[in-house]
Design a protein around this nucleic acid. Sequence first.
DNA 1: CATAATCGTTGGAGCGTTCCAACGAAAGGT
DNA 2: ACCTTTCGTTGGAACGCTCCAACGATTATG
Lengths: 337, 337
Amino acid sequence: MAHSRPTIHDVATRAGVSKSLVSLALSGSPKVSDASRKRIVDAAAELGYRPNAAARSLVVRRSHTIGVLILDLHNPVFAEILDGVQTEVRQHGFSTMLISGGVDPALEQAEIDMLLQFQVEGLILIAHRLPAEALRAIAAEVPTVIVTRDDIAAPTMDTVSNDDIAGARMAVDHLVGQGHSRIVHLSGGDNPVSDARAEGYRQAMTQHGLAAQIHVVPGGLTDATGYAAVHDALALKPTALFVANDVAAMGAIAAIEYANLRVPEDISVIGYDGISIGGMRRVNLTTIAQPLADLGRLAAQQILRRINDRSAPAQREQVSATLVIRGTTGPVAVTPT
Amino acid sequence: MAHSRPTIHDVATRAGVSKSLVSLALSGSPKVSDASRKRIVDAAAELGYRPNAAARSLVVRRSHTIGVLILDLHNPVFAEILDGVQTEVRQHGFSTMLISGGVDPALEQAEIDMLLQFQVEGLILIAHRLPAEALRAIAAEVPTVIVTRDDIAAPTMDTVSNDDIAGARMAVDHLVGQGHSRIVHLSGGDNPVSDARAEGYRQAMTQHGLAAQIHVVPGGLTDATGYAAVHDALALKPTALFVANDVAAMGAIAAIEYANLRVPEDISVIGYDGISIGGMRRVNLTTIAQPLADLGRLAAQQILRRINDRSAPAQREQVSATLVIRGTTGPVAVTPT
DNA sequence: CATAATCGTTGGAGCGTTCCAACGAAAGGT
DNA sequence: ACCTTTCGTTGGAACGCTCCAACGATTATG
């Protein structure tokens, strides 16, 4: 039973040298004789030696780990962002410690505390629910970047997001371009991202002279809430729906079809996010696509930058979303419902 | 600039006690006077003290972290399993360190090495690609549980999986029950899980006296590979397709519809996994559903059990999949294509 | 009243590393 | 022949924490 792992000391005695030399050899120092190096490497291999990262990080005061908080793993958006983070971060010799937050902001704070105890060198928060104040406190302590939100400012906190207002306007523009005017927005509930998208909807509607047609139906960001919100939306007799995100849009489409209406013939639906399943022909969802993996990649780059220079000025990067026209939107019917 | 974090020593001097007492007080020992405890707690709060997990784990020789390796974050199956792992593990005061493996098995091994350097107390491998030998070496060193595979045995390695052969048979049974006989299997490529599902398909076909109809078209586990494999499958003029997993099934359906055939009227399609998006009405995929979150939960329970008793006998838990009939399968057409 | 037990507290050792100052031996320069 | 440099190597301190043995002061026991 290899119950206690071999330490550097075990390797040293086996190779007949001092532990210092083992450390030197294993970190690839040039000032170790070839003979010693070989003996050390062999001894380490025979013993199955693996350096203890906790001990190392204690002395070098670096953990080479960055913490990632994800709101909800079920939403594929976040998995795709995470993937971008992961690949970028790994290339620079860092690991990620992942926490998926719960619904409760207090729990979220506890999770972050735990990450900080592990001495993560940076924090990437993907769609969190923390109050601005708590966020600033965290950012003051450790390099932090927020993904998908940029409404909170702190001197040393970076953000990477897409311009939700602009994206929402693109959605409405597309719908109007297809001849729609009775365009209802299914909101994503009470959070900054959804607020911005609703705001973009209002702006674009107003700009197109459709201020009188503005209707925001409260909903959520999940399949179920999208499904449920359709009932209220249909009462407004829309010809098109702009839904706050793709997942909810898929739920909405289900509900529309359940009500014996066709998409897009009777009602056009456009989502937001650009999750990959939306691109599967089975789903075929028209959407405003964010470059999700890029979002993750950029977040990783920002955090690495700030780790190297903690006092760098706050950077708020924006990526631009693009309209992806697929099968759930079409021209308005000649005889409106 | 709070560049160097306060240590236990800082708290001690501020509270006017020794660092030992601080340690005692903060770990909730009863042998600390109320007066001292209060002073210590206050001092810690004022300083924003946060214990250094690396230092602690060095001395207590426990990291309270378990490592999770995920093959591919893009497949929603894994996210759902991970979610189950996460909630269970957290309840027991553990954290997770997540790595999403690449395509390259060598890279996977490197990732695991890194997890081990961080002194994770256990390893949960969700759909890995490691050779049996490497796996046994790892299991000998640290508690390990494999999710979604049970073909490799090691004395101290647990597995949790569903019975893929039985599940695949259920799929075929369902199709046969709908009158199908020209049932083609789109395989998931060359990996143990896909092999088992193909094997179940063959067994069931044989059992139903359809041995002559057995056709396995090589494919993969992604949307794109499912889409691509349909071309070969259609050449066999099937009335039903059993696809190795849900994601590929969605790709397959897209390809079928692109070929101007209808699902399920012309061709029935059944998948495997039970990912949640399959349940969205927009997708509405008939499938063999694994209890994914349960899979994750069980894996977590096994790892925790083994952490407490490293020499426990290997446990191979199986969960049972269930047939979920939705809209992509139906009775065979009276005039077969 | 002396001794023993209890209480709250403390210094120090040790966890597995890295890194620095310093070592002796060999090689080079004069 | 001596002094200096270079090379390979080493012991020990430090990182921040926990835990143990031991402390003095108070309280209980005989």
